[in-house]
Design a protein around this nucleic acid. Structure first.
Lengths: 149, 149
DNA sequence: ATATAAGTTAAAGTTTACTTTAAGTCAAGC
DNA sequence: GCTTGACTTAAAGTAAACTTTAACTTATAT
């Protein structure tokens, strides 16, 4: 199977010009050309999926280009690439932890607004939080009272 | 307790000018001033922590400003704020899922390079993947063969 | 044959989120 | 009284990641 740039753009949910930009930046090595036009093949999708991952974890274009450049140099750069992968894996772990923290903050907010809406006013939430010990404790997130807004 | 902009910047690990920028953009409502100078108080840190979360999940400044503006309008905007929070909570869930997917991709890469390094060449990995059934299967990530680079 | 649609490049433009600069204010220490 | 250091504002500058534009090529359908 082979695909035009627009087809790939649609599949990846990006602008075709983004793919051209990536290509110009060295993020899409060895894309076949037919009459000057880019033709994407199955092998390219393997890399596109990894690239997509790298974008998702916010690796800067510059760093992805470094990785690609290393990969093109073959076995001599295996260790460097391995190190990069480990670094990014650690990076992802940290990001997930951050997001999980934020998730808790937002869970609290959900409770906060749910409670305020039920009472009709935000003022009530502080009172409820203050009275917490008299309520079923699991109705209130552990981190209640962190509020503000 | 009250803190200067520089002290807060140090605590939040941002540039003081970033805090001024946030203030100018309406992301830091009701900061006290003494002789024209910003003075941060305990109540401000509650919001700063939430703001920090919102930055972490990549909410654009514009959207955070919307939220702040709603909050300043009081109880009439409770429902809207609740909806925003739910939307962002969903958003975080999606981001975590994406990151977890990427994590798997990187775990595969880790295996890939570890294997290649042991063999001294990348070529070996494909062979090993092809021969997989003859190996201890749990030495190879489930998603082997997704490779490319 | 010719119009259309989809591709091409190089270069300029846009957006977002800061960051830096320049010029000025102000309280504290010498 | 004067320097120093930390703050202030408004405005200009920067960096990253696209996105748009303009001029051009090429395969396909009429």
């Amino acid at each position: 199977m082979s695909y035009s740039i627009q087809e790939v753009a649609d599949m990846m949910n990006v602008n075709a010009s983004t793919l051209r930009y990536y290509d110009a930046e060295g993020l899409l090595p060895d894309i076949k050309r037919v009459n000057g036009k880019r033709v994407f093949e199955d092998k390219d999708f393997k890399w596109l999926r990894v690239l997509n991952c790298m974008k998702n974890i916010h690796m800067p274009v510059k760093k992805i280009r470094e990785y690609v450049a290393l990969a093109q140099q073959g076995d001599a750069t295996l260790q460097k690439r391995y190190d990069m992968i480990l670094e990014q894996k650690k990076n992802i772990e940290d990001q997930i932890k951050e997001l999980q923290n934020c998730y808790k903050e937002f869970e609290y907010k959900e409770w906060y607004y749910k409670t305020a809406l039920a009472a009709g006013t935000e003022k009530a939430v502080e009172n409820i939080a203050l009275e917490a010990p008299t309520l079923e404790i699991d109705q209130i997130p552990e981190n209640y009272g962190k509020g503000g807004f």
